[in-house]
Design a protein around this nucleic acid. Sequence first.
DNA 1: GAAGATATATTGTATAACGTATTGAGCCGT
DNA 2: ACGGCTCAATACGTTATACAATATATCTTC
Lengths: 252, 252
Amino acid sequence: MDDHDGPQDSGLLKGNLNLRLHSSLARELGRRILSGEFPPGHLFPGEIEFSHQLDLSRSALREAFRILSAKGLVESRPKAGTRVTDPARWSRLDPDVLAWQFASEPSPAFLRDLFELRMIVEPAAAAAAAARHTEEQTRQMADALDEMTTHGLSTEQGRAADQRFHSLIIEAARNQLLSTLSSSIMAAVAWTTIFKQRRRALPRDPMPEHRALHTAIVAGDAEAAREAMVVLIDLALADTEISMREDEQAPA
Amino acid sequence: MDDHDGPQDSGLLKGNLNLRLHSSLARELGRRILSGEFPPGHLFPGEIEFSHQLDLSRSALREAFRILSAKGLVESRPKAGTRVTDPARWSRLDPDVLAWQFASEPSPAFLRDLFELRMIVEPAAAAAAAARHTEEQTRQMADALDEMTTHGLSTEQGRAADQRFHSLIIEAARNQLLSTLSSSIMAAVAWTTIFKQRRRALPRDPMPEHRALHTAIVAGDAEAAREAMVVLIDLALADTEISMREDEQAPA
DNA sequence: GAAGATATATTGTATAACGTATTGAGCCGT
DNA sequence: ACGGCTCAATACGTTATACAATATATCTTC
């Protein structure tokens, strides 16, 4: 195996991208846990030995473990050591965990689960927004849609306006738990968009459907808003499926 | 202000209940953040001074801050210090955060949000379970229902069987993101149950509705399963509302 | 062979020192 | 008087070391 005669990364070089040491280490370990490189039940080396392998202090390692533990990915017990927990206990909807998931290319099964959850949550949020929105919120939604139209979804600015539009819908639903959930989902969707647009531009312009959703919310028509959101997600799903089929045909 | 002539808890004695020091400290700070005692934007004392006030080491304090930071409750920056973040960034669906929320009595608004979320997620999960369940899963559901009938919901064993029944439904839905979300929701529901049963027993036996849900799932009837779950949640909501009205009439 | 005491390895906690980045005040120039 | 720049103080970030607590494993004893 490894010759253990000095500090070595042993393949675990922390991808230090302007982050704090414990954060980037947590990110790297989290990524490897989610990718399956460290499977559930995997036992890490002792803190002292592991910190020497990674060439950092035990404190930094412990703080990284605390972060991962807070997200349910690992569990530390005296004498027993620190090991990867059962996936059922992972906080898969945590923003960081989602980001780590997308650090490696996500599996088709994960994307299926993600779109199924979107189809459950977002139409309901749209319906609630139709019932509870304020005039100020619908006005800002209109502004966001205008900006989307102006810049298009192929630009960074256009995508930001898209995100703002959906954020406003969530906010208008007036449910803090729903907001937390939706912001996590939207973060994940943003990641899929990055993957989706890797090779080509969007196949078609989804602006008419966005306008329809906005109209339904302004009118206070909960059912129409629900259905309009279903249509939007169906469009996104179709795009993603096309993109994935292209991945199969032309991998790497 | 405080006279700062020695180690003092300054009101922040860590409720040390068989937990590690950093965990119980994170719990205590998290509870106070969620209760509003430390409002968004609140700046904590410097780590050295704060650790002296709390009469513990800086390491333990920092690890507690890392836990809270991982759940989005606080943010640390060099020179600027550690402060409570904006509530929009809190991981309100995190199991620990939910538990901290219920450490103080939850607000009616929170319960409203919780039941609204249940009404969105759980019927959809029941429908998915009807479509995707295995025979083994429905058999175990039947076992759980039998145990509920035997022991009743007033016993610890009966409530455990109830939880197992709902867990099996989630598992049968075969969606990892949905599982994560549902387990968080169920944890929150378990807390409300504790509050609910503080004063009196359940008003009536929900077993027939549980059986109806089980029958629908076994039959693979997604729509019937969805509707049966809606009925179950409506029952729970009615119970909780009754309990809360009693709280208003006889506070404390 | 089972049950209890002991040994030991590993995490948990404490302390101290130094590095580093950010902030904000002060200075200088325009 | 105002704006931009320099610089130092401050708080987090990181490292190192020592010791305490604890759970597991081993060994002993009945």
